[in-house]
Design a protein around this nucleic acid. Sequence first.
DNA 1: GCGAAACATTCAATATATAGAACACCATTC
DNA 2: GAATGGTGTTCTATATATTGAATGTTTCGC
Lengths: 270, 270
Amino acid sequence: MSNPIRARSPSPVRKVAAAVKDSKAPAITRAAAILRLLGRSDRPLGVQAIAKELGLVPSTCLYVLRALAEEELVSFDADTKRYALEAGVLTLARHWLRRDPFNDLAQPLLDRLAQRFGLTMLGVQAVGLDHMIVVAMAQSGSGFQLSTQIGSRFPALISATGRCIAAFGDYPEAVLKARFDQLRWDDPPAFEDWMAQLRQTRAQGFAVDEGQYIAGVTVVSAPVWKGAGRPVHALVAIGIGAALGRELGALQDALVEAAGALSGQLGGGA
Amino acid sequence: MSNPIRARSPSPVRKVAAAVKDSKAPAITRAAAILRLLGRSDRPLGVQAIAKELGLVPSTCLYVLRALAEEELVSFDADTKRYALEAGVLTLARHWLRRDPFNDLAQPLLDRLAQRFGLTMLGVQAVGLDHMIVVAMAQSGSGFQLSTQIGSRFPALISATGRCIAAFGDYPEAVLKARFDQLRWDDPPAFEDWMAQLRQTRAQGFAVDEGQYIAGVTVVSAPVWKGAGRPVHALVAIGIGAALGRELGALQDALVEAAGALSGQLGGGA
DNA sequence: GCGAAACATTCAATATATAGAACACCATTC
DNA sequence: GAATGGTGTTCTATATATTGAATGTTTCGC
């Protein structure tokens, strides 16, 4: 894996079979699984390889691939008979990014903070309680950097941002507990301690994770509101804990201020 | 439209019906059409609106949307019953970008050239003879800029890059003619002149478009090879023709040099 | 250069995704 | 406050997408 900050590991592929069963449009479930598999693979794949990996019937797999190729979501090399992701996915992603003003407005703020503190900054969007996705990133460019990529996914409740999502989301404790128990930390907090941290997060308006998710790495996260209800975005700072030192206070202030300003621009209530 | 450099206009939506007929996996055709429609729309849409726009049966449309939502390619607001693109498309795009070293390697070159000449620079990938897609972009940041966005699509044979694709693609003249006739330029060249320009492009290793595609805008494009065969990528410079003036020569040299260096890194033949 | 394995692809029977009507649920409007 | 037009959603018969075996097609080993 080329991702220094680990994202969730690929789920057991045999889940595809179960998902297909319940769906009223199984072809789409299969198509999505194929797209994800092709994305995961670092080389183009043939029909058989795809079908075997996902537990699909080869002929069905072929028809799905042809339909995807027709839509330019998948490329087909007529010589090698191999399939790969095609640039069409990029077009969709561009439209998605354009649809949400957060993605445009967050970037300059992230750039400035990354520059000022020499850190990696992220803009993150929560997708329900399942996970969050990195939608914007800025790096200072100097020295070592912790890096992740736009589009990377993480469990929704992990680390500092997870505390923000939980703290301001107004979810029942039982629901949080169920999700919490599935998280994997380097230094897992006890659920009671974590709940106490949520209260603190609510009180101070931001969350901090000092080496619990990843040893030695400090993460600071502040929620961004777009309207009433629960926040779906957050600004995140990631740095080596030891290197941050006494700058941590200033970073927290700057992050909260930026998140507040952004909430204002997006028309979000407090 | 928020795109100063015009991309192809959305195709007649009634084509969906025809495409669905011929496919062995019509659900996927429908799903792709829905995703594109949602991308095009600047607001979330309801089931009926989507179905009507694409000529689909509402119930079928609902099932497709549910499947897409299950795959997190589409978001569903339970309160308003509206659907929109979801962040999952971004995850796919990230994987696509990572798969091709061109996307990583081109960026620093584009940055440098954009800075040096104060222009907008693009990395472009051809998708057959249908169109090309912007996969990387750099802007100088100072003054007025012609802008487009990553993921934008253009007809494959248009402008300077189109000449590169045609010149080095080794396509039959009849095929080129058919595509050429569908292009829309501000100042369309005659086919014979265009063919002559292709010969010149082959000879000098790059192509120039001085106000033909868009009046007043000069485009310079140099092909990038990844292996043997036809080039699929190109580096592109876009600037106001009048402002370029005598820098054009230096720009051409720098662009060709960068494209050559990139071809070398990618293991492309001459 | 031959045989055989592995592959992509086609084909026909059937399980099932889909179409269209019926239903339920809001909002407005009279 | 009943009626109307607009939603989203369920239901069921049928057209059809899917399946698994059969057929070409390539690739590999000997």
